[in-house]
Nucleic acid binder design. Structure first.
Length: 559
RNA sequence: UGGGGGAUCGUCUAGGGGCAAGACAACAGAUUUUGGAUCUGUGAACCCAGGUUCGAUUCCUGGUCCCCCAGCCA
């Protein structure tokens, strides 16, 4: 019964559910994710991937991966491979259904011939400039090309010569014969084929002509039996053409195009062009720079694919265009990492602390919980000794109100260890800089066993100086310092965040991190989630900060 | 002043002739050996104007504002 079904989550699922119930397409649901292999995927694509694969899953259907490789001048196998890797990483499986529009070139050509025979397409020999002029404007109708009335025979002959390689690029194009006066510019005899004397990454030099998106897309959808062809809003105007082509080519399957709003995120840019500019101008290091919204970048940054999926589920699908705040994405990253990231202690900006009453040479192995959210993750031993490092931020000579950390005379708990009290501050005689602090520890307050009634307000993280591993840590922040980098048409480069990355060397991390491999994710207690960077080696650990923990102290201090 | 789409808390998304719901963010409190997590609570919205109606955010009419389209890109 339909009333036992949960309400559809969005208008597209509502349509799909209705179609399935009405047995449209025989009750089958078949979608596709159709990237052009001319760049790398970003989180905007993730929305489409989750939508298409998600709907297929929910409606017991299938989702194809199809490369829209109709423009050899811009495309490359390198992109094909990276796109496949990204889709897999996101957690989706196209099984044996990875297709290419180029797989259909021969059939597409035959459909073009069919259109010519029906008098629905013609070879135009106007120049690109002339075609533009003839097209008219938004408010004025276009003019018909003088070549529009060529005979079927002449068109057939010309078109086959275009294919055979007898003409220069731009000499001719194949156009649909629709309506030069249409208020919808896409219907003013759109181009179906153009001459391109460029080798294609899959078909080599087999072809001298290539179909346009407008021609190839609907036919590819139909050939694959795609029932619901989901795309972004800017293709809304193309739908009449999409339908016209399926009708005129007499396709057995009339796929249904449905448009939804693309994803926009605050504090970043999403277009391939701008992403490329950021890379080429050296503002970021490459497509996998952890500050970029590319899937490669997010992966390197440490974002779990599950977090991205949850985010995409959560933002929903609608037709109004808007901008999602990045903090929503970050929320899902924290939420998933909180549940499964191993906790570890790491001191980013070390301050030496000597426990003057702790026996020289003594080492204790203190048990530490790996993840309080998940007891199954067990515990580990953390070495403790007379000299430890704490965070410089965790000591203040003049502590503000409500500062629950270390200060002269004040007490604080070292996580999983003892309560210590600051008794002395040692500074560099020249610079006056604090070089180390002396504390005493209270042996009665050992974590767990002690049961000391004594409570302190603060607990800070630390690492044993003799046992710590040195590491480099890269702290990332938003690439842009404002939510909408392109507001009022300004150049987004003018609002790049100068502090979007901070490299910290000489960080001291817990020995449990020995041997951590690239991609492994941790929570550095009290600081955030970090992931081992691909620059990391056995000798030199490098971490990326995925996202900081929520910091309510920072808020208090701001006031 | 062509055509196509859209307008609900700060943000995203529901709903739909009769109390406008959720999430993030914000704020307040509880709790806490992570100032994390968790829990509780608070504030916060139907673009405007008319009309129909007992009643309109929803239906109708007219506006306003925003987005997209003049590639041989997708």
């Amino acid at each position: 019964m339909s009333n036992s079904q949960p309400a559809p989550k969005d208008f597209i699922r509502a349509i799909v559910a209705q179609d399935r119930e009405a047995r449209k397409f025989n009750g089958v649901v078949h979608t596709r994710f159709p990237p052009e292999p001319n760049g790398y995927l970003h989180i905007g694509h993730a929305k489409s991937i989750c939508l298409n694969f998600g709907i297929a899953q929910e409606f017991s259907g299938l989702c194809n991966l199809r490369f829209d490789d109709t423009n050899p001048a811009k495309e490359d196998v390198e992109y094909v491979e990276s796109i496949q890797e990204d889709v897999r990483w996101l957690g989706f499986d196209w099984q044996d259904r990875c297709f290419f529009a180029s797989d259909y070139f021969e059939r597409l050509y035959e459909y073009a011939v069919l259109l010519i025979r029906k008098g629905k397409a013609y070879v135009d020999s106007l120049t690109a400039d002339e075609i533009r002029t003839y097209r008219g404007t938004l408010t004025e109708p276009g003019k018909e090309s003088p070549y529009r009335t060529r005979s079927v025979e002449e068109n057939l002959d010309l078109f086959s010569r275009m294919r055979a390689g007898g003409c220069e690029e731009g000499a001719h194009v194949l156009r649909a014969k629709i309506d030069m006066a249409s208020p919808n510019i896409n219907l003013r005899d759109p181009t179906l084929y153009r001459v391109r004397r460029v080798p294609h990454h899959r078909t080599g030099s087999d072809w001298n002509i290539y179909p346009t998106y407008d021609f190839a897309h609907p036919l590819s959808d139909s050939l694959e039996g795609i029932t619901h062809s989901l795309c972004t809003l800017e293709f809304e105007d193309h739908r009449p053409l999409y339908d016209w082509l399926l009708d005129e080519c007499e396709m057995a399957c009339h796929s249904q195009q449905i448009e939804f709003a693309r994803l926009n995120l605050t504090h970043t840019v999403m277009s391939k062009r701008k992403l490329l500019e950021l890379i080429e101008e050296g503002h970021v290091s490459g497509w996998d720079d952890p500050r970029l919204p590319t899937l490669m970048g997010l992966r390197r940054r440490g974002y779990p694919p599950e977090a991205i999926r949850r985010f995409c589920e959560h933002i929903g699908v609608a037709k109004r265009d808007g901008v999602v705040e990045v903090n929503l994405l970050e929320h899902f990253v924290r939420e998933t990492l909180n549940a499964n990231a191993q906790r570890v202690m790491a001191v980013l900006r070390p301050l030496r602390v000597v426990l003057t009453n702790y026996p020289e040479g003594q080492v204790e192995e203190l048990p530490a919980v790996n993840n309080p959210e998940d007891p199954a993750m067990g515990s580990r031993a953390v070495p403790f000794s007379r000299v430890v490092y704490i965070e410089r931020d965790d000591f203040r000579e003049d502590p503000p109100k409500k500062y629950f950390r270390l200060a002269p005379g004040q007490e604080v708990r070292l996580r999983y260890a003892y309560i210590i009290q600051c008794v002395n501050v040692i500074r560099d005689e020249q610079t006056g800089e604090i070089v180390e602090i002396h504390c005493t520890y209270d042996p009665e307050t050992k974590s767990g066993s002690g049961q000391s009634a004594r409570k302190v307000k603060g607990t800070i993280h630390w690492v044993s100086a003799t046992h710590a591993l040195e590491a480099e840590v890269r702290l990332f922040d938003h690439l842009f310092s404002v939510p909408d980098p392109e507001k009022d048409g300004r150049d987004y480069r003018t609002v790049l965040n100068p502090n979007s990355v901070e490299r910290l060397r000489g960080c001291q991390v817990e020995p449990a991190l020995q041997g951590a491999v690239a991609g492994q994710r941790f929570q550095f207690e009290r600081q955030g989630y970090f992931c081992v960077d691909s620059d990391s080696t056995g000798q030199r650990l490098v971490f990326n900060r995925t996202v900081a923990l929520r910091d309510s102290w920072a808020k208090i201090e701001k006031k």
